[in-house]
């Protein structure tokens, strides 16, 4: 059975179709989920896509946190449902307290779009299992508020527990603490990442196809966990 991966569309979501394309290219079935519909439609995993949910008003991700679908999602994520938050999706995950810390305005105060080199630091999460630890990948990054911050204790804890899943290499594009590009929860099912793996899934349109690894990782993890038969 093909794994069904939900992609939530909030008003102002922009990369939802791209996330759905990445799911399909990795071999999954994408399922559109609507912010106002408090139902996950029995999907096997969820992607919170990039964009400007609710116009980034108040604070990035702060309003999306209250969308009807999010109540269901938080419960499911706490129950082990795999969730990937990309860019604005990462911001929604921190606002929803599924991940610690916060994303703040880039230190140079400009929006930045570039092909970003990353090092994978953890391949035990459900979204990074197909990578090697230490593997270097190149995927697009595009954000105005991507500076990852948390207090020192939290940062030490993330490092100590191996929950930093990827770090910026060569250039820290937004002032993130300890060059952190992405993190996971303790259980390894919820991952937030600021750069955009869904924009590096085809040679034609992306700098590489390195991003596909996040989506194939999910499918492998689902099979290995016995959620889906291979």
């Amino acid at each position: 059975m093909t794994p069904r991966v939900g992609v939530i569309t909030f008003p102002g979501s922009l990369d939802d179709k791209d996330a759905a394309r990445a799911v399909r290219l990795a071999g999954g079935e994408s399922v559109s989920l609507w912010h106002a519909d408090a139902d996950l439609h029995s999907v096997d995993a969820v992607v919170l896509p990039g964009g400007f949910s609710y116009g980034d008003y108040l604070r990035c991700g702060a309003i999306a946190k209250f969308a009807p679908v999010m109540g269901k999602l938080v419960d499911a994520a706490n129950g082990g449902l795999p969730v990937l938050g990309i860019c604005n999706g990462f911001q929604v995950l921190t606002e929803s307290h599924l991940l610690p810390g916060a994303l703040t305005r880039n230190d140079h105060l400009h929006f930045i779009c570039r092909d970003q080199k990353l090092r994978i630091e953890n391949n035990s999460s459900m979204w990074t299992s197909d990578f090697e630890v230490g593997q270097e990948i190149l995927i697009p990054l595009k954000n105005g508020e991507g500076g990852y911050v948390a207090d020192e204790v939290t940062l030490d804890e993330l490092e100590g527990e191996g929950r930093v899943i990827a770090r910026y290499l060569e250039l820290n594009p937004n002032g993130s603490r300890r060059d952190i590009a992405g993190i996971t929860n303790e259980r390894g099912n919820v991952v937030g990442i600021m750069p955009h793996p869904e924009h590096a899934v085809e040679k034609l349109t992306g700098p590489t196809t390195d991003g596909l690894g996040f989506f194939t990782s999910l499918l492998s993890s689902l099979v290995n966990n016995g959620k889906i038969s291979a």
């Binding site: 791209d18 779009c113 924009h199």
Partner: peptide
């Protein structure tokens, strides 16, 4: 200048 603009969104930029 151009790195302040998103050129990737929609996934069809060749």
């Amino acid at each position: 200048v151009t790195s302040q603009y998103d050129r990737y969104v929609m996934g069809n930029t060749v």
